[in-house]
């Protein structure tokens, strides 16, 4: 009888394995290294403040009301801008998803204007609306509008035709097909678009505030740079990161709730 040899295992290896503590360890390690580099003088404070200095700046600036004032100014631009751009973008995108004429006329225009970096239009918008808030809100709205229209259109387009045929086969009126089949079916794509437009809004917000604003996180970061207050500067950047994380966290919850059937 021939010798029996066990078959060597050669699977596994590339499977993702949960590592719950590692992300925190990595964060602590980076902050620790950074702090050590600052404390030993390896990182001159003028170029890069230590994490402790940044923390202190964040605490002090929060306590004296500076940070809340800048955040409020930023949110007063970003929220209306995003809402206006999203409302208009959804209207146009869904119309392009439903009506052939809207698609044929709208899609080439939207596709042609989509790649323009919208911040390039800020000078024009300042001429139209003045240097104040409306031109900044309009820049954000414009930047949000195009990706929203395109993602809403392609989300409608990707709803399986067979579901629409099913609705027709049961005699559902057109409005019911839109409301009960097309829009719910497009929801995942529309919500995925929100993640993109939220980051577009944040980007345009900071850019617009750096071009001409007294208050706002972008203006705060720019002033800190001009005054070489790197601790304030990095604190402002950290605020942007926190704001982005909060938005993404909120959208994640919205998605899980709206798409709870998945």
């Amino acid at each position: 009888m021939a010798e029996r040899r066990p078959i060597p295992f050669r699977g596994g290896g590339f499977d993702p394995v949960p590592r719950p503590i590692v992300p925190w360890l990595a964060l602590v390690a980076i902050l620790g290294l950074w702090q050590v580099a600052s404390s030993t003088g390896l990182l001159p404070p003028l170029f890069m403040p230590s994490p402790a200095t940044v923390m202190r700046a964040l605490v002090d600036l929060s306590a004296d009301g500076t940070i809340p004032r800048h955040i409020e100014a930023s949110l007063r631009r970003m929220i209306p801008g995003w809402l206006i751009g999203t409302a208009a973008g959804l209207a146009v995108g869904i119309a392009m998803g439903i009506f052939s004429t809207a698609r044929a006329s709208g899609l080439p225009i939207v596709s042609a204007l989509f790649p323009i970096p919208k911040i390039a239009l800020l000078p024009l918008l300042i001429l139209w609306f003045g240097i104040g808030e409306p031109s900044k809100i309009a820049t954000i709205a414009l930047g949000v509008f195009f990706p929203t229209a395109i993602s809403a259109y392609s989300a409608c387009d990707s709803v399986p035709r067979n579901l629409i045929r099913m609705g027709q086969s049961f005699g559902l009126p057109g409005a019911d097909i839109v409301r009960k089949i097309l829009l719910p079916g497009a929801m995942p794509g529309i919500l995925a678009g929100f993640r993109i437009t939220a980051s577009v809004a944040l980007l345009l917000l900071v850019a617009a505030e750096m071009i001409g604003a007294e208050f706002g996180i972008g203006a705060f970061v720019l002033q800190a740079g001009n005054l070489m207050q790197t601790d304030h500067l990095v604190a402002g950047v950290a605020l942007l990161s926190i704001l982005g994380l909060l938005i993404s966290f909120g959208l994640g919850h919205l998605e899980r709730w709206v798409l709870r059937w998945r």
């Binding site: 399986p160 067979n162 579901l163 045929r165 099913m166 086969s169 049961f170 009960k180 089949i181 719910p184 079916g185 929801m187 798409l259 059937w261 998945r262």
Partner: peptide, 14 residues
């Protein structure tokens, strides 16, 4: 005239 479909054509959100 009512269909039964090969891919069921159910609405996943209902």
């Amino acid at each position: 005239f009512t269909y039964i479909f090969q891919d069921f054509a159910l609405l996943p959100w209902r």
